[in-house]
Write a protein that binds this DNA or RNA. Structure first.
Lengths: 166, 166
DNA sequence: TACAAGTTTCAGAAATTATTGAAAGTTTTA
DNA sequence: TAAAACTTTCAATAATTTCTGAAACTTGTA
């Protein structure tokens, strides 16, 4: 399989997978394209490569920048903006986790916690509070676990460096 | 806050949260309703409670049954079907994990693996293979971690039982 | 300052996804 | 066996999400 062919498949795959998880398909595709591109690309190059409009590229790139997965990268002697993605997958995962934490987990936790103020005079409330509390614990653990994995990987990285230096 | 009020909020919350994660909103709402209902509900009761059509209830309930989160529960002397949800949150999480594993993670892993057959003569391929391999490792670890959490919880449960028996 | 090059925005169009409701199908009862 | 009670399906419709493209805006250049 040629590289460009594999890259195209990867872009497709990432796009579909992303949209199953509530991430805009085009955003995921642009991310995949930049992730597997040797150098930074201009808006026009992205437009051509993925056959999407200028507006689409712009909107999605900006969102990727908010997620801290993509950054602008100027090219000397060119007035256009070029874009490149963070390439370290563990760093990518860390940033996605961080953003979802901020956008989804924290508000969810907050709402769940509020729901525990249910009037305990109601008979069904005891079970309800237990359910809500269990969900809180579950979400909390899941969240902490993904952080832990990323930290472990960091340590593994340093670990191997240190091993090399010995 | 009254129980019914809290329950309604919970249903709303769960529905919105679900749809952010690629789960049909109505399905998540029905799940939330059953999760916090004392006894099994009929199709008509669900229709009324969530103001959705008969078809909608039927389709989504069937999907919840496929996910193994809800089961049919007959009532003696009544011809209607009643539905109830698995209440143990850790069991719920285990079943969701299992289903996503089957539907999403496995196909993703398979595709990623195939992409590693990229022609290494192409210069960019080396980096590409590294990226794909790293994603595979990441997804694998994430997946294993969620299994581990659920197993730990099981052990904690047995652990406390055993402690009680001593 | 005026023009050119590039970026951003956003109203409307298109595509996708979810929902309804009524007809067809199934099961139970008498 | 027929009718009643209930469930399932799915074409049509509605709601939501995404995308386009051209106008407005911004920035750099001469």
């Amino acid at each position: 399989m040629k590289f460009t062919e594999a890259q195209q498949e990867f872009i497709q795959l990432w796009g579909n997978f992303g949209s199953q998880w509530g991430i805009n398909k085009t955003m995921a595709q642009i991310h995949a394209l930049l992730l597997t591109s040797e150098h930074a690309l201009s808006t026009d190059e992205i437009m051509e490569s993925l056959e999407i409009s200028r507006g689409g590229v712009n909107t999605n790139i900006r969102e990727l920048i908010v997620w801290n997965l993509v950054y602008k990268s100027g090219k000397p002697g060119d007035r256009k903006e070029f874009f490149a993605a963070e390439k370290d997958i563990w760093e990518v995962a860390k940033r996605i986790t961080r953003e979802r934490q901020r956008r989804e987990i924290e508000p969810l936790m907050h709402h769940l916690n509020r729901l525990k103020n249910v009037d305990e005079a109601d008979r069904q409330s005891l079970d309800f509070v237990k359910t809500v509390t269990d969900i809180e614990r579950l979400v909390g653990k899941m969240n902490k676990a993904s952080e832990t994995i990323m930290k472990m990987e960091e340590n593994a990285f340093f670990g191997s460096i240190i091993r090399l230096l010995k």
